[in-house]
């Protein structure tokens, strides 16, 4: 318990509660359950992508192509729906998930088999995926009147008082909490990122583990692509432009170490919620959205400073008597 209180997660919870209290002192309506659920729903795409990114970063990689993957998948889904409104939603979902997975697999294969640094691979595929959107759409938008009601209705459909989009984020969080804690693959993400050399000697295939992290990240990005386009009822080339940075920011604020091998899904969830609350609260308080960027940026710098400090204290303990208390 005392260990939890000292953890990044406890700190983030405290920061989020303090933030909410501060906002509520001026605008009590902000913390009404209906508004909080709106904030959560608005943050759901970020949560979904950040979970995938977390797995990728745990294995010492980074996936900058997630937002482009989201946009391309979203555009394909929107164009399919516009031209063939009869395609049922489960089929659309299956297409979104598979497309995302394939794009993630391309990243993963390049990293695994060609040993290209992930930042270079995903910077390249990010540009390629964005380019393809332009090619297939010719730069045209798909607007809401071209989409079917079922298509745009799915993410908003309410189940037990929460929209489908929120439920999908909740299910994803639960699922990956389980994957991380209770599957060999989840354990392998930490081992490969924590010490790739040792992982090799343990019989783990480092490249293959990283491949699966990219596939999962891509899959979640693809799924989110459909949900995003349907929710906003519009698809265009620059959808979610720059969103990948927000995704990485959520992970870093959540305590995922950029050096790999350290961090939790709960941390990422809290990091994403923090950004989501800041983003939703600022217009309410009447602060210019430009400040939002500065605040997010400061949060990242502070979080990285915290990460650096945490990893310093984790160093070797030379004094024997200090060992037991560590």
């Amino acid at each position: 318990m005392t260990q939890f209180l000292k953890s990044r997660e406890a700190l983030l919870i405290a920061v989020i509660v303090a933030l909410l209290a501060l906002i509520a002192s001026r605008f009590p309506a902000f913390i009404e359950p209906s508004n909080l659920s709106k904030v959560f729903n608005d943050t759901s795409p970020l949560i979904l992508l950040a979970i995938g990114q977390t797995l990728v970063i745990l294995t010492r990689c980074i996936d900058l192509s997630v937002a482009a993957n989201l946009a391309l998948t979203g555009m394909v889904c929107a164009m399919l729906n516009a031209s063939m409104p009869g395609i049922p939603i489960p089929v659309i979902l299956a297409i979104a998930v598979s497309m995302g997975a394939v794009m993630g697999a391309i990243n993963g294969l390049l990293v695994w088999t060609l040993s290209i640094p992930p930042i270079v691979v995903t910077l390249g595929t990010m540009t390629i995926y964005r380019g393809i959107i332009f090619v297939i759409s010719g730069g045209e938008w798909v607007n809401s009147h071209e989409m079917s009601a079922a298509f745009t209705g799915f993410p908003r459909a309410e189940v037990l008082g929460l929209p489908m989009l929120s439920w999908i984020a909740i299910i994803a969080v639960a699922m990956f909490l389980l994957v991380i804690a209770r599957t060999p693959l989840g354990r392998a993400f930490y081992a490969v990122g924590g010490n790739p050399n040792a992982a090799v000697y343990t019989g783990l295939n480092v490249g293959r583990t990283q491949f699966w992290a990219f596939v999962i990240s891509g899959t979640l990005a693809g799924l989110t692509g459909y949900l995003w386009v349907a929710r906003y009822a519009v698809a265009y080339v620059d959808i979610a432009g720059g969103f990948e940075l927000e995704v990485v920011a959520a992970c870093v604020i959540g305590g995922i170490s950029i050096a790999g091998g350290a961090g939790t899904i709960l941390g990422t969830l809290l990091g994403a919620l923090f950004l989501g609350i800041v983003k939703n609260a600022l217009p309410v308080i009447g602060i210019s959205p430009f400040w939002q960027l500065a605040i997010s940026g400061s949060a990242i710098v502070i979080a990285v400073a915290f990460n650096a400090r945490a990893s310093r204290t984790k160093g070797r303990i030379i004094l024997k008597r200090a060992e037991g208390t560590a």
Binding site: R182, P184, R187, N195
Partner: peptide
């Protein structure tokens, strides 16, 4: 340091890392 222990994982997870098939059941640890 480089090839043996995986820092950041607790002791028990380090020990069981190559034996996860032994300690898991239907894919779950």
């Amino acid at each position: 340091g480089k090839q043996g222990a995986i820092m950041g994982l607790p002791i028990f997870q380090n020990v069981t890392l190559p034996s996860l098939s032994q300690t898991s059941n239907r894919g779950f640890l």
